[in-house]
Amino acid sequence: MSVILAEKRAKEEKDMRDVYCETLMELAGKDRRIVALDADLMNSVGMVPFARAFPERTFNVGVQEANMIGVAAGLSATGKIPFAHSFAPFATRRCFDQIFLSCGYAKLNVRIVGSDPGVTAAFNGGTHMPFEDMGILRNVPNITIMEPTDSVMLKDLVKQTAGLYGVFYIRLLRRSAVKVYEEGSTFEIGKAVQLRDGSDASILATGIMVDEALKAAETLAEEGVSARVINVFTLKPLDKEAVIICARETGAIVTAENHSIINGLGSAVAEVIAENELVPLERVGVNDQFGEVGHVDYLKEKFNLTYDEIVKRVKKVLTRKIK
């Protein structure tokens, strides 16, 4: 792991999906085993250039998520390295048994890419808005679940998974992310990244909530509260050590995720601190609700996925801190 933090956090120029496609094309150019599968969303995820460049290694099964996962698993049994994409709810919820058995239990080698996490499903609305995708998949033994923060991390993680064996879930923001890492940064799957040091409380964040967490920490600093910010981009295996260190050193934790607090990052962190280092915890995330249609900013407000909320919850957690 070698991380360089971006000097200025701003929206990246390129969409994450384009970086995903470019990265897969680069990998496929070097390794004939790389194959891409989709369930009629290749245009949505920007994979048309891949399909043009590698038509024989592109398998668009049409609107058949369960079949796509099974075909991906079958391809991997013959030595191929499949990346299978659909929108996150359909790539997970719709075909959980196929992921669990055909991929996980059968010990095959499949990468599942679920796009439009949480509120970023925006105008597709509640039917397409996954607050449960990572939570569902946490139940698959030995699966690796990652939510890349920006394009630099995405590129690095996609490349890494190509060389690893197992079942991987990559939660992919399709549009542009806020730049957090400088080009050239590399990451270790399963190791959280500290973005800002602090001593009063720790904010553990993933996905679009990383930028919100950093904004919250900046706001809190102005008010004299020192908040540490950690990017927990791997939900499973969770970096337990980082969580325990945060609990010991800052004595209070707030989690922030564009996902349900049930079985997501908040739950995973709660499990670790309850068993190892009990400190007060507040969980920012979707609280047992279905999604709805709207623009992202509206939805972030609606589901309390804002830096304001994180600030509030840090202040709250401080009042609960064990003296």
Partner: peptide, 13 residues
Amino acid sequence: GQGASLAVGIALG
């Protein structure tokens, strides 16, 4: 049902 998709994947591979 799952073996059907797996077999298709194997045949494709």
